[in-house]
Design a protein around this nucleic acid. Structure first.
Length: 895
RNA sequence: GCCCGAGUGGCGGAAUUGGUAGACGCGUCGGACUUAAAAUCCGAUUGGUAUCUAAAUACCAGUGCCGGUUCGAGUCCGGCCUCGGGUACCA
């Protein structure tokens, strides 16, 4: 994935309890030798898993499969931050859980390793991006392994590996073959000061993110992928996916399908052969079209502008061209435009209407021209009002309607043969009429643009394209991969050509087919390319006959669970779906959609911060401080703040403070480094805490002191079983038949954990395990069978401690493939049933009834009424109704 | 502006179909153990009122705000407010 916010080094002052303890006397140290020691057991089991290849993906297809995937990371220089392990822990729990439930699990990881930071570092230091990338990957791998994730490391993929990008290039050739890749002159973000092209994300307010230099649009020859051809299929495919509604909605909006009509308006000027084609979703309002607008970039502008208006139009075009996209929208409150001097004929009414140029019409959407219907369009109304153009309502607004343009439902008026029809009927009617008169037809439009697929960068996949006689020509498959050439300098050339142009020997080549001189394509692919299909490579990472072995794809795909950040809701997920559908059409894959279920983990924010404001040395309220000059922001410790009403105030005052958890960022200095947490508490605590914080998909503030809670829990688990003096099992851990109570507690835990893991409610699953341990501490014996079952429940969450204790309980095999405990509902039933007794909906008492009477309405009601505190209410009034919900509640209604 | 999501103790959160609001954890307070500290263990912890004190019990209010449906609403319906995310002249 493209780099997101990166973490920096952050040093924790909070020191480990275990570490501190080492300064104390010998006895203590001896004890510590047998106390819970994550350092020791975690490295032991990580080595065990690795040397035994415990998590090697099964080769056979004999069991049901489960493919659980993380969005692979961009290996940045700052290493993992605490956001990464959140999703990774969730998927790891699922992977381990499914293995124990008899699934063949594919749980891989890899590196989205092309990208800008390594290249920028190369520009600055001359270090080859390959070296930077390799170093970063090694760091990431180590960090991931230190968290005990059960990835199959034999299936690791790396987008920068020529053996991988060979197939990225191969897929590009398929796109080219199918006519889905073409060259076009496209305006790009060109920064003259930096002498480079910038990605949209690198341009902020029309200036370069780095240096703040102006950025202009400059047309350049670019590769473009025809994703628009798949717009409909990308839209329809969404329906069957188990994805967050909001993400599907965002993709739908992005594709932006709208159904309407294309209508031709004849130009009523001297040279009357011209037509203006418009797209509209409201053809029913055509009788209200009182003028037309062309985008400033529209081809027809020059041809139809009258001589006396030419100067004004030219000037307007100039102005519009200089505006950045942002300026255009920023100034949107005030509409601008110029009359062309030309008129067109409304094909429905036969009226002559003026044609204007205005930048509120976008050249890139629809036909770049509109029929303006101020009566039913707010923008048109605004424009018409400003330039005093006629307004005709063609839909009758409701009587109580107050406002300008009316865009709602209603009967057609002022519309000749459409009068009286509703909006939908009128649309159908007018489209038929237009088609009949050759003036228009039904049409569909999309917001989705074709995908600009080339970058003027070094660190990306080279295109498998040469140019012969100025024409692009694809290379044959046998010439793949086209590997990146070595260059001295990673910056663009002085002419603005991409860095690859510096590799002259590489660029100048010959056409292998004809022997003619040829030049190689010097653009590279964008970072999205590698991430568009990596999930397929995992199915058969060493396959040499194509991007993926069809049989493996057929078994493993689609991805059953895909977890990653919501920031990839549109682009990555849409591009990957697009490629997947193309590969489906090529017969490379058997599935129409790659990711069946998708979940976004919520962002982890920094620790809660309190900020107070002072002016002239006095506290002032935060809500008053904004915009007041000379205020001073002061970060406050927790104890200097107290809650008053709905908000927090500086202790002892009425001055409000800002209480907020902020996004982690280097500049704010609130980045938490997972390494520090692992060092202090161990990987199991880290995993457990990240899952215990709250629901996976929710945004949550980090709180290091809360890690103590899960760390204590693991200590309690350890001590329940292990005698700290001997390091052996406690005397209470014995081979014996569990009591009914013990079975009840265990099976309640089994039920809760199993259900919660299925629902991804990891936080409540952990809470259920805590309850189990709290209960188990009350027992004077601990049957091994019960503890074994509990260790299985714990193992997906805290695998190291689970393996260690599993072994201490006498098991020789890893717990990773132990059978998940089976729920026996019989054990859940207690001897008595408790009923809360309400009077008029308020709880006034509770009763316990024997199990065999639990559903006996007469009995329960009689018992209920005999409760002293209930009876006193019954005495006061008349019992009018009795509500009895079996095994739930009793409510007595008294008047 | 539009589209999504969320508002529950001092804090993170729980309550999966309308059925005892605050599980579990953090923090805080009190106690036990200890020469002492740490660790550990036990108890209390939404606010208020009443019963002489304590224990205990009872009652009232309480899930962003206002209203509704229901025997019963954190949960359902209508109208707002606040925060977060996305998107923005898309005809």
């Amino acid at each position: 994935m493209p780099p997101s916010t990166e973490g920096g080094a952050y040093c924790f002052l909070h020191r480990s309890i275990r570490r501190e303890a080492t300064n104390y006397n010998k006895i203590l140290i001896n004890n510590l030798m047998s106390s819970y020691n994550p350092d020791k057991i975690e490295s032991k089991w990580q080595q065990y898993w690795q040397s035994n290849k415990t998590f090697k993906t099964p080769e056979s297809h004999d069991k049901p499969k489960y493919y659980v995937l993380d969005m692979f990371p961009y290996p940045s220089g700052s290493g993992l931050h605490v956001g990464h392990p959140e999703g990774y822990t969730a998927t790891d729990i699922l992977a381990r859980y499914k293995r124990m439930n008899g699934f063949n699990v594919l749980h891989p990881i890899g590196w989205d390793a092309f990208g800008l930071p390594a290249e920028q570092y190369a520009v600055k230091t001359g270090t080859h991006p390959r070296d930077t990338t390799e170093k970063n990957i090694n760091r990431f791998r180590e960090q991931l392994q230190s968290l005990g994730f059960s990835y199959d490391w034999d299936r690791e993929v790396n987008t920068t590996d020529p053996d991988y990008y060979k197939w990225t290039q191969w897929i590009f050739l398929k796109l080219y073959e199918k006519g889905l890749a073409y060259e076009d002159d496209v305006p790009v973000n060109w920064c003259p000061e930096l002498g480079t092209v910038l990605a949209n994300e690198e341009v902020i307010d029309g200036k370069s993110e780095v240096g703040g230099y102006p950025v202009i649009k400059k047309p350049m020859r670019q590769w473009v992928l025809k994703i628009t051809e798949y717009a409909d299929r990308l839209l329809e495919g969404l329906d069957e996916l188990d994805w967050p509604q909001s993400t599907k909605e965002m993709q739908r909006n992005w594709i932006g399908k709208s159904i309407g009509a294309e209508i031709d308006f004849a130009v009523a000027a001297a040279n009357a052969s011209e037509h203006i084609k418009v797209f509209t979703t409201r053809p029913d309002t055509i009788f209200g079209a009182t003028y037309m607008v062309l985008a400033p970039e529209h081809d027809l502008v020059n041809r139809i502008t009258s001589d006396d208006q030419r100067e004004a139009v030219e000037e307007y075009k100039q102005q519009a061209a200089q505006k950045s996209d942002l300026e255009r929208t920023e100034l949107s409150k005030e509409k601008t435009g110029v009359f062309t001097g030309a008129y067109a004929v409304n094909p429905a009414s036969g009226e002559k209407i003026p044609v204007w140029v205005a930048d509120y019409v976008l050249a890139t959407y629809g036909t770049g021209a509109i029929m303006a219907v101020p009566g039913q369009d707010e923008r048109d109304w605004e424009f018409a009002e400003k330039f005093d153009l006629p307004i005709i309502r063609t839909v009758e607004p409701p009587e109580d309607f107050v406002g300008k343009a009316y865009t709602g439902e209603g009967k057609a008026i002022n519309s000749d043969f459409l009068n009286g029809l509703g909006v939908d009927e009128a649309k159908t009617e007018i489209i038929a009429w237009l088609e009949e008169h050759g003036a228009g037809k039904k049409a569909v439009n999309y917001k989705l643009r074709d995908w600009l697929f080339s970058r003027q960068r070094y660190w990306g996949e080279p295109f498998p394209i040469i140019h012969v006689d100025g024409e692009p020509k694809p290379l044959d498959e046998e010439h793949l991969p086209v590997t990146l050439p070595e260059v001295e300098d990673f910056e663009p050339t002085e002419d603005g050509d991409p860095p690859l142009a510096r590799a002259e020997k590489w660029v100048k080549t010959t056409d292998p087919e004809t022997g003619k001189p040829a030049v190689r394509e010097t653009n590279t692919m964008p970072q999205w390319a590698g991430s568009c299909w990596y999930y397929l490579r995992y199915c058969s990472p060493d396959f040499e006959g194509g991007p993926v072995d069809f049989d493996e794809e057929k078994y493993w795909m689609p991805v059953d669970m895909y977890v990653g950040g919501a920031e990839h809701s549109v682009l990555h997920l849409l591009y990957a779906r697009f490629w997947h559908k193309v590969l489906y059409d090529c017969g490379v894959v058997s599935t129409k959609e790659p990711f069946q279920r998708l979940v976004h983990q919520g962002m982890i924010l920094g620790e809660m911060e309190f900020t107070g404001y002072k002016k002239d040395g006095e506290w002032i309220s935060a809500d008053l401080a904004e915009g007041v000059s000379g205020t001073e922001r002061i970060k406050l410790q927790d104890e200097r703040v107290e809650k008053k009403g709905d908000h927090f105030v500086v202790a002892g005052t009425d001055c409000m403070v800002d209480a907020k958890a902020h996004k982690m960022s280097k500049s704010r200095g609130n980045v938490v480094n997972p390494d520090d947490i692992v060092e202090q508490y161990g990987a199991d605590s880290m995993r457990l805490y990240e899952m215990f914080m709250g629901p996976l998909e929710q945004v949550k503030p980090w709180s290091t002191k809360d890690v103590d809670g899960v760390f204590r829990f693991l200590n309690r688990v350890w001590r329940l079983m292990i005698d700290e003096d001997t390091g052996e099992l406690n005397d209470t851990v014995i081979e014996t038949d569990p009591s009914g109570e013990q079975l009840k507690v265990l099976h309640e835990c089994i039920q809760k954990v199993t259900g919660d893991v299925d629902d991804l409610s990891f936080n409540t699953a952990i809470s259920a395990m805590m309850i189990f341990i709290n209960e188990a501490y009350k027992w004077d014996n601990h049957p091994k069978s019960v503890l074994q079952s509990f260790m299985k429940l714990l193992s997906p969450f805290a695998p190291h401690i689970a393996e260690e204790l599993w072994q201490k309980l006498g098991n020789e095999e890893s717990i990773a493939y132990a059978d998940w405990p089976e729920l026996n509902e019989e054990y859940l039933v207690s001897d008595t049933q408790m009923y809360p007794i309400q009077v008029n909906g308020k709880v006034r008492g509770e009763i316990y009834v024997p199990r065999d009477k639990a559903k006996d309405k007469e009995y329960v009601l009689a018992e209920a009424k005999s409760v002293e505190n209930v009876a006193k209410y019954l005495d006061k009034g008349k019992l009018v109704k009795e509500i009895f919900v079996p095994e739930r509640i009793v409510n007595l209604v008294v008047q």
